[in-house]
Design a protein around this nucleic acid. Sequence first.
DNA 1: GTCTATACGAAGATAGAC
DNA 2: GTCTATCTTCGTATAGAC
Lengths: 190, 190
Amino acid sequence: MPGSVRSRLIESAVELIRRNGVPGTAVSGLIDHSGVSRRSIYINFPGGKKELIDTSVTAAGGTMGEYIRNLTEGRSPVEALGDFIDFWKRILIESDFTAGCPIAAGAYGGQDVPDARDSAGKVFHEWEIILISSLVDNGVSEDSAPALATTVISAIEGAVMLCLAAQELAPLERVQQQMEMLIEANTSAP
Amino acid sequence: MPGSVRSRLIESAVELIRRNGVPGTAVSGLIDHSGVSRRSIYINFPGGKKELIDTSVTAAGGTMGEYIRNLTEGRSPVEALGDFIDFWKRILIESDFTAGCPIAAGAYGGQDVPDARDSAGKVFHEWEIILISSLVDNGVSEDSAPALATTVISAIEGAVMLCLAAQELAPLERVQQQMEMLIEANTSAP
DNA sequence: GTCTATACGAAGATAGAC
DNA sequence: GTCTATCTTCGTATAGAC
């Protein structure tokens, strides 16, 4: 239900996690950002903040997974890579280099929210499956596709973090260039 | 001064930031972990938590920068890469997959500690300079060395994060294999 | 579902006594 | 430098009234 209290809360949580991480995302901040009453949070998420965070990481990961699937379908890995890089550039620019990946923030969220960390692991694994299938369909061997998929995700996630730190897009652009070379190397190999 | 109150505080801060991120690192936790009195924190770091965090990110980055420099000196990039990957594997295993990179945590620390984020940016830039010089010394062209250096750092940082999320070492091992291939591709290229 | 009030603990920071 | 006490703000969570 778009527009519902529950979905509004999740959207706000994703946005705040992006910017301030899991421990930095306070319930009071969520109330301000979402306009939802304090009471409703604990009605929709009896587990409180932890449940909301966990749900939000999973939801954001699912949305992005669908996005990645659309990018890869019927297109070359290099084309999909370029669009995915552009997607991240937009996030960084529009947020003035304050918002990164909510899944990464969930993974680095600390040990008092292990559910969010586990959910982040599941999300990354789903992304890998989507990428592997796309790579295999485009001439990458089944032996090397998993490693390549993991590397593409790692490199992009790392680059987003470097972009946040440096407050510029250069890391993503450099990684894009090198990932194109790496995809090429994995395609032409035996 | 090793063993001093100041250095003990920094060591504890690095350890706690690794595990719980910047917002998740509390002053009370620092007192417990370091054994230093509350008073001494504000004597050594008049700026309070923010100054301590910022100083700790820079210190950890400097230490690791020296470590990277030692790994690369007089050795091939692939050898250095292998040792650096092993270094991270050790951190992950010894912490039971709870401790990641303190610099990454600084970059994702949120907007109330922008100094830590900027320090993280400086640290990554120093690492890049070290790697670029090592790569150029080993047959990578000056044109492509910067992009390759940024990519290696991004991929490893991303892989560490994926390892934390998945609670396993596979992402780092896959990235190692692909980075070896990428270094090879950049070395044999014209 | 909304609003407001409130309990209870933990956060960061400061100050006095030694 | 250490100890403890304390101030203030903020955190999560709950409950009553509508």
